[in-house]
C-alpha cells in the first residue's frame, strides 16, 4: 500500500498506477456540485488546493456539546456529475488527488495525465469507515453559501484508504470494466 501525506508531490503522484491501494493522511478538502459550479462561474476557490486533495463528499457533520464539529458520516458521492468542470479545476487549482466514486470521463483523465493528478476511488456508501479516518475537522468554508452537505470541509485524516482507479498515465480501471461488460452485454443480446 502506498502511503501518501499532504502536501502531495507531483513525482509521487505520478508514480502511482491504476489498481494501487493508497492510504492518505493529512489535510483533504471536500467539494462537490456547488463548489464546481461556483468555480466554473468565476468564483474564487475558498481554499488552496495546490498539491492537495479534493474529496467529492457531502458529509454529515454536527456540532458537539463542546462546540467542536463531529463527523458522523463521510463517504464519497458520485463524481461523474463534475465531469464538465473537472479538467479546468485540475488545471487551475493544482490539485493532485481527487477522491470520489464511480470515476470520471476521458477529458478528466487527459487533464490528470497533463497536470499530474490521480483519481482515488473510496467505497461508496462506506460512510462510517470514512468518517472514522477523519481525526479532526480543522474548519469549513462556504457553509452559509452552499449548506452543510455542499460546503468545503477541511478534514485532517489518517489512513484514509482507497484504490487508484484513474492514474496520471491515462489508465482508468472503469474504462476497462465498461469495455469488457459492453462486449459481454452484446454477447447476451446476440449480434447487434
Amino acid at each position: 500500500m502506498a502511503r501518501l501525506k499532504y502536501p502531495f508531490g507531483e513525482k509521487e503522484v505520478r508514480s502511482l498506477k491504476a489498481g494501487d491501494t493508497v492510504s492518505i493522511s493529512g489535510r483533504i478538502y471536500t467539494g462537490r456540485d456547488k463548489l464546481h459550479k461556483f468555480f466554473a462561474d468565476g468564483g474564487a476557490l475558498p481554499v488552496d488546493f495546490r498539491d492537495g486533495a479534493l474529496y467529492h463528499c457531502g458529509p454529515i457533520v454536527v456540532k458537539g456539546a463542546n462546540g467542536e464539529w463531529q463527523v458522523k458520516a463521510a463517504g464519497p458521492t458520485t463524481s461523474v456529475r463534475e465531469n464538465p468542470y473537472e479538467p479546468d479545476f485540475i488545471a487551475k487549482s493544482g490539485v493532485r488527488i481527487i477522491i470520489g466514486k464511480g470515476g470520471m470521463d476521458g477529458a478528466t483523465l487527459a487533464a490528470m495525465k497533463r497536470h499530474g493528478c490521480v483519481y482515488v476511488q473510496a467505497t461508496g456508501g462506506a460512510a462510517a469507515v470514512s468518517a472514522a479516518s477523519v481525526r479532526r475537522v480543522a474548519g469549513v468554508s462556504m457553509l452559509d453559501e452552499f449548506g452543510a452537505a455542499e460546503a468545503v470541509w477541511h478534514f485532517d485524516v489518517e489512513n484514509f484508504t482507497g484504490v487508484v482507479a484513474m492514474d496520471s498515465h491515462g489508465v482508468s480501471l472503469f474504462d476497462s470494466v465498461r469495455e469488457s461488460s459492453r462486449r459481454r452485454l452484446a454477447g447476451l443480446f446476440g449480434a447487434r
Binding site: C57, G58, P59, I60, K72, A73, A74, G75, T123, G124, G125, A126, A127, A128, V129, A131, A132, T161
Partner: peptide, 18 residues
C-alpha cells in the same frame, strides 16, 4: 470495507451512508 462499515455504523449508531 462494506461489511466493516455495516458493523461500525450499527455499533456507533451512525448512518451507514452519508
Amino acid at each position: 470495507t462494506i461489511l466493516g462499515n455495516i458493523a461500525l455504523a450499527a455499533e456507533g449508531s451512525v448512518p451507514v451512508c452519508q
